[in-house]
Nucleic acid binder design. Structure first.
Lengths: 170, 170
DNA sequence: TCAATGTGCTTCGAGTTCGAAGCACTTCCA
DNA sequence: TGGAAGTGCTTCGAACTCGAAGCACATTGA
């Protein structure tokens, strides 16, 4: 089933190529479509929606800055910028963590919750229309399983954020 | 198998959610990893690599600006910017089309071809390591099929570039 | 034929993104 | 205990991205 570890392949099989191209294409098109919907309805960028969604998902609606950045695969400085925008719009608040004086916890406000609620149905509808409408239940199940493995693999391989300040060169 | 067209779903099934989250996560992580590899080896951004790859794929190594932009799901002004960068680095040339005086055809230079050749093996290796190593042949096959359907669906739904200058508001 | 409309590309300005550098706090360990 | 190293976040500058507006050529149709 799995390829052995020590063969260095110089090319991809046609099927792998198809899978890769289809993946990138779906990724681009889906993202653009979703982005437009989010902007039209809630005036949110995709990143902002992701941030609010993660906050909405958190048990107490609070997440540390770094965890937010890692969660959406985003630079820390970029997150600072976006968090400022969201705070100015009153959708989140930022306050120092009681546990660690360095940390900032971002909290969803009531306004933030209602914006999230306003955007969500359209977001779901778009996903149905653009993605799931073309897929059978079996397909969706397979997709979740396969991409789950891929995500595990990707997460296992590289430390993404919080990388050491100066990298040891071997 | 397929959902009927007229039920407006208010939420996603847990499996759909898992599929969607796994998809976005793989998309982000894979893109970041690939981006880093491309920048380290060839000094190329992901977009630039996509552009060169498309040119390398074209029968005569020539593609119109608009077709390039549509191919990589990119704004036209953004493409103008990137094409200038690539031209300054000598990887492509831009020349007016003989057919249509307005069109510009972008052509891969020998230098562009060799940069592409230098980057490709590492790109393939990264895909194997990050993505395909975790997937069986059957998985890859399923992935290609399922995402192929999804891409068809997405392409069928919205015209992306070359949208009318002023939209008819119904 | 020639105005009206459409298409291909670029310029421009505003907003976004990132990494490097820097500051503040925390942890480690001799 | 106290300096060194690590971690969390922000600031800064440079690069990138997009949409709107504009120019030039092409197509349409009266």
């Amino acid at each position: 089933m799995m390829k052995s570890m020590d063969d260095l392949p110089l090319s991809l099989t046609p099927t792998q190529l198809r899978a890769y191209f289809a993946f990138t294409e779906v990724s681009s098109l889906l993202r653009h479509a979703v982005e437009q919907q989010l902007r039209d309805v809630g005036g949110l960028s995709y990143v902002q929606f992701q941030l609010l969604a993660r906050l909405g998902d958190a048990p107490d609606g609070q997440v540390r800055m770094t965890d937010l950045a890692d969660g959406v695969v985003y630079s820390r400085s970029g997150l600072t910028y976006q968090a400022q925008l969201l705070e100015q719009r009153g959708l989140v608040t930022r306050s120092p963590s009681p546990d660690d004086e360095r940390s900032i916890v971002v909290t969803l406000t009531d306004e933030g919750i209602s914006v999230l609620a306003a955007v969500f149905p359209g977001h779901i509808e778009a996903l149905h229309r653009l993605l799931f409408a073309a897929l059978s239940d079996t397909d969706v199940n397979d997709l979740a399983r396969i991409l789950g493995h891929a995500a595990d693999q990707l997460r296992a391989t590289p430390p993404r954020s919080a990388s050491p300040r100066r990298r040891k060169t071997s």
